[in-house]
Simulated assay, not measured.
Amino acid sequence: MKILSAVTNNIETDQRLDKVCHSLLKFGYDVELIGTTLRGKPNLNKPYKTHFIDMKNQSSAKMYAEFNFKLFFTLLKKSDKKTILLANDLDSLLPFYLVSKLYRLPLVFDSHEIFSELPSLTDRPKTKKVWKTLERFLIPKIKYFYTVSDGYANWFKKEYGANPAVIRNVPNRTKLNDKQDFIFFRLPPNPNNEKIVMYQGAINMSRGIDKMIEAFQYIDNCQFWIAGDGPKKTEYEQMVKDLNLTNRIHFLGNIPPKTLKTITPLAEIGMSMEEDLGLSYRYALPNKLFDFMQAGIPILGTNLPEIKKTIEEYKVGKVIDNHNPKNIANKLQEILNEGKKTYKINLQEAAKELCWENEENKLKLIFEQIKKID
């Protein structure tokens, strides 16, 4: 059977979609992932098929309208009687739903977040109302549905009576004796061999990055590396300059996942400081938590429910009480004083359990249900 999926995110670096597509390919499906030219049209070396939708509008409501319109006709053209449709997030769900009804095809929905509750919609009530209306119309109609955390699953159940499975966004297992290919990447200067604190992910609002930067006014003898890109990067770079921290806080830029895997283990601590600005963040379970575990570094995390529960259940770090920069600095210092060797055994045990090789079995079960019906 053929599986058609699509995403507005960066098709080159979206690790969740890449893992899902690899697994489905392994399970014997013919997989095609549809992306956009919003970030160019890279030459992809993927074992599954890829297709790009040419986009004229680069942002705002016009972009979403253009994408959904073109995706609808792309799906119509590529679908046949042996197709399973796999939608990712609310921003692509409508065309998948319409095509599934027109051709009577099975539809699977992977919700990476609660789209209508994103912080970026807080000050845009009209836009939020549109997404909320779409969510309210579509979600109760989805039979095959999975999401990334228990918090999200419980919310969808309470709000819409849905019952999604939970497939966490965990990385592939990294074994300590794996042979690593040499990958060149120019690291920031560290002449005094200071310990590294690391953030990786989008540089966006509600990630607590500004609070982490401010915390470095109150802590010495370590550097802060920020791997990623996003709309807040320029603002935070200026903040670092204003606080005279340019010799200790470094922006590494966007790093390909394969390269990042070789850099993260160099850190002493991984940071996950998401703030409670909307339900989508409150119940988030970021993949960087699991990346840090696979890299063998303890985590300093926010006190949001899913992040706190994971860190405390597996005893792989500490949780802050609040986002006050001095409080963050104090917690950081506690872990630095302990050293990551203190957490080594717990991190190794967590890494064995929280890996894609275990999670993908849940994915297999969902698609096997569809095959049995077919």
Rank of each mutant, 00 (worst) to 15 (best):
K158G: 08
Y64R: 15
T133H: 12
K81S: 15
R124A: 14
I142R: 00
T122S: 11
S120G: 11
F145H: 03
K126I: 10
V130A: 03
L94G: 04
T83W: 01
K141V: 04
A153L: 04
L76D: 14
S120T: 12
A162L: 07
R136V: 13
L107Y: 05
L90Q: 04
N68Q: 12
E117V: 07
D110S: 10
L102D: 14
K158S: 12
G161P: 03
F137D: 09
D89L: 02
E135A: 04
S149R: 00
Y64G: 14
K158V: 08
G151T: 01
V108E: 06
K78L: 13
H112S: 02
S116P: 01
S111E: 03
W131E: 02
T127S: 13
K77Y: 11
K157L: 10
R124P: 11
L118K: 13
R104F: 14
K82F: 10
K143F: 12
T122F: 08
D110W: 04
G161M: 05
Y160M: 03
T127L: 13
K126T: 12
L102F: 15
M63K: 15
L138F: 12
W155L: 07
L121K: 02
S116W: 01
W155E: 04
E113F: 03
Y144H: 14
D89P: 02
D91C: 11
D123F: 09
G151H: 01
E117G: 04
L102G: 14
Y144N: 12
N154D: 14
G151N: 02
P95R: 04
I142K: 00
Y64I: 15
L93I: 07
L102I: 15
Y103T: 05
R136Y: 09
E159A: 06
Y97E: 05
S100H: 05
I142T: 02
P119R: 05
P140H: 08
P125A: 06
L76P: 12
V99F: 03
A65M: 14
E117M: 08
W131K: 04
L90E: 01
G151Y: 01
P125F: 06
K126C: 12
Y64H: 15
S116I: 03
F137G: 10
